[in-house]
Write a protein that binds this DNA or RNA. Sequence first.
DNA 1: GACATAACTAGAATATAATTCTAGAACGAG
DNA 2: CTCGTTCTAGAATTATATTCTAGTTATGTC
Lengths: 192, 192
Amino acid sequence: MNASKQQILQGALRCFIEKGVEHTSIADIRDSSGISVGSIYHHFGNKDGIVVALFLAGMQDHEARQIAALETADSAEAGVKAIVRCYIDWICEHPDWARFVFRSRTLVENSAQAHLNREQKKAHFLRLKEWFAPHMEQGTLRRLPFEAYHALLIGPAQDFAQRWLAGITRNELAEFRELFAQAAWQAVKVQD
Amino acid sequence: MNASKQQILQGALRCFIEKGVEHTSIADIRDSSGISVGSIYHHFGNKDGIVVALFLAGMQDHEARQIAALETADSAEAGVKAIVRCYIDWICEHPDWARFVFRSRTLVENSAQAHLNREQKKAHFLRLKEWFAPHMEQGTLRRLPFEAYHALLIGPAQDFAQRWLAGITRNELAEFRELFAQAAWQAVKVQD
DNA sequence: GACATAACTAGAATATAATTCTAGAACGAG
DNA sequence: CTCGTTCTAGAATTATATTCTAGTTATGTC
């Protein structure tokens, strides 16, 4: 990737975190990155293009970690819990990044490049599915549509994380790591 | 509330649903509502003001139903499940409204009137808390910080609902009603 | 190495949309 | 009735996204 493209992304992210996407102008990004308006449009087409690029990069980073975490898991329980812990850890380590991803999600979904996101997400879902399928076959995990898995595993952590990132809650996200991991396992394991 | 204020809100909602908040101009709202630009600004200060007003109205509608649902519940289990079902039902009945609420949430949180939302949400949380507290005392519900409850009850349904509203999933939201209600109860009941 | 072509950069020009301003109309309290 | 306040209207202003034009640098080909 081009050097000035990188600079634009870095400058834009600084602005987005500081003042929010909607209150960041192209002029702000020019000043923060030192790259001209013309170049910005040359590389990204429009403002949404920058948001989408940053969003996808963030998701990719997180998804890669998630896959890595799954690879070391040697049981259904370990895998399920790894996903939840990995999700929470990533948010704790990159709160600004996470805040940006949450805030810009709907913008990405409505953008002209929404298909990029859909494709990336679909590919990731497929990888996860592959990992989970054998455990369903073996009867250690409930037989559910995969999307229900996603909801049951990530849903609670996601809801709490958004509150935490907004600074509304006094509780620490990390404190709930094991609670949510355990709850996820409870929700998807085959009951004895 | 003033008649033209109502007209503005109705016109704005039509536009927001049809073309999305960010692609709706004040001129669009003027045309759709028949109220002049001057009046719009007089009543709502700026575009965000309209979004916030619509958002709070939506939340209020949903919160009122949630409280009503709780009032008829005569056990911890019934209450927990009522919350989840009520959440899913509301979304199924008002998908446009729900889509708008999800999409504009972050805008509301970043707006100048964000405090209105925080206050309304806090008041609602307090009411929910009051309902849950006795059951924790009696030992039928786990002793958890209230925010963990919210995450465990609503989180999964919320995650799936967003996917459903975006039209990404083939599965029907309503089909998961009981699954998520049951999972919520599993997550917060005191294990036997 | 010289040329052609494409990729890139810059900043001015334009277009679009939010917001403010000014003046007047409707309304309500006294 | 009449003064002050709220409300309405649309023009004027301002802010910001996007496009345009011209020049610059890199890249590949003979």
